[in-house]
């Protein structure tokens, strides 16, 4: 079954075109990573997927039905099946309730079996390395990383079918992060969940996802198998992005590809290829002729006239 399907989706906030002509599909049980520059539209995409916003154009379906349809006929079930772990974890916990009540509220809203769900919540909490005493605290009595883990517990408590995780490991130290990612993978296998995970930490994306999407200025510029993409990116922006990862790897002398040129405006995106103003290998055609996302023979889609023309050592 197709869990997520986008076809030519756009989302505008006033003059800002946060998403423009975004298309991709995710099969059920897939673990997909989403990476891209700050402001490229990743969180906007998340909000569309969970129905917090409707697209300005294009088609967006979840489990083969338009999201608008789900919201009209059975919003509650949809909200339970499709969970968003928000980027702003602390702000997503309401300040006047103890953590216990916050979590119990989730059980009540969705009329879940109370005892069974609470046991599941306790299991999750323990596996994320949080002490049981955390239930008695208020949100201001917990640290940033604890809040982030609780947001994850809250999302998984519902045993959803799709989890959209916006920077789930941001601000977590590596010792906690490892346990968290193991848990996410185990639960994904157990429940055959579909994951869409955003992270600026490319090592996390590489470890956890099987496929990845690269965004630039509101568009998907590359879509392919994670490992293959890391080894040999086709789009010059992907190459530049992944080169920073290669350069950080211990014992490797790889040089990051530094992008020059002005960061383009989301209000007036450059004509032609949106990346041409910073692309080290742009040609004349790129300045006027916008490339479309096209499929290459190697199971890769890329939005570039000259794929594989930029590589890193």
């Amino acid at each position: 079954m197709t869990a997520i399907l986008l076809d030519g989706v756009s989302a505008h906030y006033g003059a800002v075109k946060s998403l423009d002509d975004v298309s991709f599909a995710v099969e059920q049980g897939g673990r997909v990573g989403l990476v891209g520059e700050s402001g490229s539209g990743k969180s906007t995409l998340c909000r569309l997927l969970v129905g917090l916003r409707l697209p300005s154009g294009g088609e967006l379906s979840v489990f083969d039905r338009p999201v608008a349809d789900h919201l009209r006929t059975d919003a509650r079930q949809f909200r339970r099946n499709v969970q968003l772990i928000m980027q702003d974890a602390v702000a997503s916990l309401s300040p006047r309730m103890r953590i216990r009540s916050l979590l119990q509220e989730v059980i009540t809203i969705h009329s879940l079996p109370a005892d069974e769900t609470w046991r599941w919540i306790e299991t999750l909490t323990a596996r994320l390395g949080l002490p049981n005493s955390v239930f008695e605290r208020y949100p201001h009595e917990i640290s940033g990383g604890q809040a982030r883990r609780l947001a994850i517990v809250r999302a998984l408590a519902l045993k959803p079918r799709i989890v959209v995780a916006d920077e789930p490991t941001a601000g977590l130290d590596v010792s906690v992060q490892g346990g968290l990612l193991n848990l996410l993978i185990e639960i994904q296998r157990e429940l055959s969940l579909t994951y869409l995970m955003i992270s600026h930490d490319l090592r996390v994306i590489r470890r956890v996802t099987g496929r990845m999407l690269v965004m630039y200025l509101g568009q998907i510029v590359e879509d392919g198998e994670t490992e293959a993409l890391f080894r040999k990116p086709a789009h010059p922006y992907s190459a530049a992005l992944l080169s920073t990862n290669a350069a950080h790897a211990p014992g490797k002398a790889g040089q990051p590809i530094i992008l020059h040129g002005e960061i383009p405006s989301a209000i007036n995106p450059p004509p032609g290829c949106r990346f041409h103003t910073r692309c080290p290998v742009a040609q004349t055609r790129c300045k006027t002729d916008p490339p479309s996302l096209r499929r290459l023979p190697d199971n890769r889609s890329v939005r570039c006239h000259f794929p594989y023309s930029l590589s890193f050592a």
Partner: peptide, 28 residues
């Protein structure tokens, strides 16, 4: 233990390292 948990660039199917147990509860 913290340094041992850094994700390296090796792709493998082994679970990631972490420090088992819980942080101390500041009330205890």
């Amino acid at each position: 233990a913290l340094m041992a948990c850094m994700i390296d660039d090796q792709v493998s199917d082994a679970p990631l390292m972490f420090i088992p147990g819980e942080v101390p509860d500041p009330v205890a």
